[in-house]
Amino acid sequence: MAMVSPATPDFKPSQNRRPDAPDRPEDSVPTRIVLAMQGVTKSYPNGRVALRGVDLMIPEGDFVFLVGPSGAGKSTVIKLLIREELPTKGLVLLDGRDLGRLKRRDVPKVRRRIGVVFQDFKLLPNKTVRDNVGFALEVTGTPRRQIIPAVDRVLRVVGLTGQADQLPGQLSGGEQQRTAIARALVHNPRLFIADEPTGNLDPVISWEIIQLLLRINELGVTVLMATHNADVVTAVRRRVVALENGRIVRDELGAAYHRED
């Protein structure tokens, strides 16, 4: 039975990262590319073309906002990354591995290298915070004695140690999202994907979540966040990739939500 690498989310900054320029891979020493999309086109069976020739590179340690109006193709990008969908044309490479040619039985292994959170948290209501997080390790065959310390560590990262034994129903929206983030982190993923993580949260809580994601990024995890939240994107000034009608219309570092010309 294939075992997952022991989950040890201590999030040491990777060696390739330079503290002074964490978001500028192009002027740093050769950096590993976590995600590469090359000429990706995706059309659905109903004829809708969601993506047209998308090229996107995300180096290790990057923090990327994926923005754009509804239907621009953000969700499709994420579905391709978690291999929920396959590209019609082009390559999607995670750590150099072509997701389009992945064998079915290798899909779970790739998913363990990606942590993903959604607008609707997707927590199991009858499990405690601790069990929800541990579930991700349990169902991938991690021994129990490794699960407990790993869960404790990620709960510390997201600041939920005190709520570990509560059920999702007893938590606020922000705490639920932090539980989901902890679960996504517990496998020590190469790429952390957040799909509208603040969509259900009020502005103050949204800020807390963004701060948490930035902190996780500082700990060395590559983050891709799809969002509509213009205030957050503009305030944080990170790399912004804007999609429109399935095309990348802008890819700027330290940018705002909207084009600033």
């Binding site: 997952v4 039985r105 779970p108 993903v116 997707k122 579930f135 169902v139 991938t140 065959g141 496998h187």
Partner: peptide, 17 residues
Amino acid sequence: ADEIEIMRLVGASDAFI
């Protein structure tokens, strides 16, 4: 179904599901 979805998302193999 939500449980299965979560299992798939976190990378549980088919056998585990």
